[in-house]
Simulated scan of single mutants.
Amino acid sequence: MKPLDTVLAAHRAYLLGWNIGVAGGPGHPTYRSDVPHAPLNGVLRVVGRTPQDALSEARTRLHGVPRIWWVGPESDAGTADGLVSLGAAQVARMPIMTVGIGAVPEVPTPAGVRIAETADLATFVPAYARVSGIPADGVAATIEREKAFTGEGTVLRLAGHLDDGRIVATAVAWISHGLVTLYFVGTQPAQRRRGIGAAMTRAALTLAAERGARTAALTSTAVAESVYRSLGFRPVGEFRLLTF
């Protein structure tokens, strides 16, 4: 298993791959995609800065876009509470979860679903946008940022198709720092509770293992945590997500 600091470094590398413009220094990295979706614009940590100074700089860098602040284990102690005292609002607590890929059980793909890699961003991005909350008027910008993604690693995009070709589930596997981190894992509402999300996750890990990854990581919503636990993922840390 990879240590937590490596997991966090891989997470930073993915989100910084969405960035346009200035990203900030190592003690206060920010990323801005200009996509109108808060998780794609934000702050990744604060080290050696007062919350007030960090918040002032972040507001300048991220002015005009929805954004979040990932306050995790590598930020200075007291950062989250300091930001809240300055007017930031906590919107979620998300566990950071990892698993050794070799320990993940096999998962059957539900009948009528076919999971495969895809390079068709014109259909893939709208599918994950509907599930993750990216507004319709932000899809075009998301596609352009996906095309221009500059992260140091490998992106694998998986789509779950029905027999009629419709995409009902998505997953993005980011291979960096010797592990795979998962993003945009989601299933369209009408197809949930069929085991598609678990199958998508297992398929993504299989592809990543074929490319040398041995550890998998992700951040989970409360709704999805039980699914990931059933696959063997366990919490190793936590992010407090703030808006500002």
Rank of each mutant, 00 (worst) to 15 (best):
W69N: 06
S75W: 05
T50R: 07
T118G: 09
V125K: 13
P108S: 14
G138H: 10
A54W: 03
N41T: 07
G102W: 15
G48I: 01
Q90E: 14
L156V: 05
P110G: 10
V155M: 08
A148D: 06
G100H: 13
P108Q: 11
Q90L: 05
D81V: 09
V46I: 02
T142D: 11
K147P: 00
T142I: 13
A103F: 12
N41L: 08
A89V: 05
G112M: 02
I143L: 00
T170F: 01
Q90S: 10
A119M: 06
L44W: 12
F149W: 06
G160Y: 03
P110S: 00
R157M: 09
A88T: 13
K147T: 03
L162W: 09
D164M: 00
R61N: 07
V43I: 04
T60L: 15
V125E: 09
R130Q: 07
T123V: 14
R130C: 07
V71T: 13
V155C: 11
A54F: 01
R130V: 01
A92T: 11
W69R: 12
A122S: 04
F124Q: 07
P135G: 10
R45S: 09
E117D: 07
P110F: 01
L121T: 00
A111E: 08
A129Y: 08
P105T: 12
G64T: 07
T50P: 11
G165Y: 04
P73T: 15
R61H: 09
F149R: 01
P73N: 14
V46F: 02
A89D: 12
V113I: 04
Q90W: 07
G78V: 12
A111Q: 14
R114S: 09
T154G: 08
L162R: 15
G82R: 06
S132V: 07
R145Y: 00
D163S: 06
D137Q: 06
G42W: 03
L83W: 12
A148P: 05
A127M: 02
G133Y: 14
T150R: 04
G151I: 08
G153T: 12
T109D: 05
Q52H: 06
A92E: 15
V155S: 10
V168M: 07
A111D: 10
R61S: 11
I143E: 02
R157N: 12
M94Y: 05
V65C: 14
G72H: 03
Q52C: 03
R145K: 01
V104I: 03
R49L: 12
R93E: 13
I143F: 05
A140H: 09
M94D: 05
G82S: 04
Y128T: 04
L86G: 04
T60H: 14
T50I: 11
I134F: 07
A88F: 03
D53G: 12
G160H: 08
A92G: 04
L86W: 14
F149I: 03
G133L: 13
G87A: 06
W69D: 02
V107W: 13
A169F: 03
T98V: 15
A169M: 05
A88V: 09
R145H: 01
E152Q: 15
V131R: 00
L158H: 02
V139T: 03
D53E: 14
P108E: 09
W69K: 05
D137M: 09
A159R: 01
I96G: 03
E106P: 12
G78W: 15
T98I: 15
T142Y: 05
P66I: 14
R130H: 00
G153Y: 09
G87E: 09
P126H: 00
P95C: 02
S75T: 01
